[in-house]
């Protein structure tokens, strides 16, 4: 189990009802983590609509997660 810190923006913040949270997860990758969180919070954005950054760098969905990582799922926004 890894302990990861999450930060939500825009639609995800609304749907999660919070800006940050720390979770204990068995997910090994951001992909698995998003699936787990989407089920818990009812996220309506598809994974393919999002980007993920781990420890302040964009990364791919299958990189391994480590204890203490900070994970941000970034939804696209277009408002002006």
């Amino acid at each position: 189990m890894a302990r990861v810190h999450l930060r939500y923006y825009a639609l995800l913040r609304e749907q999660a009802g919070r800006q940050t949270e720390t979770v204990e997860t068995a997910a090994q990758t951001p992909e698995a983590l998003y699936a787990e969180l989407a089920a818990r919070h009812g996220f309506r954005l598809a994974q393919s609509q999002l980007k993920v950054a781990v420890n302040a760098s964009f990364t791919d969905w299958t990189c391994p997660l480590a204890d203490g990582d900070e994970v941000v799922f970034i939804p696209p926004v277009a408002g002006g």
Binding site: Y9, A10, L11, R13, E14, P76, V77, A78, G79, G80
Partner: peptide, 10 residues
């Protein structure tokens, strides 16, 4: 480039 959403921006 910039975008805003509610209380946030990129």
């Amino acid at each position: 480039l910039a975008s805003v959403y509610q209380y946030e921006g990129q």
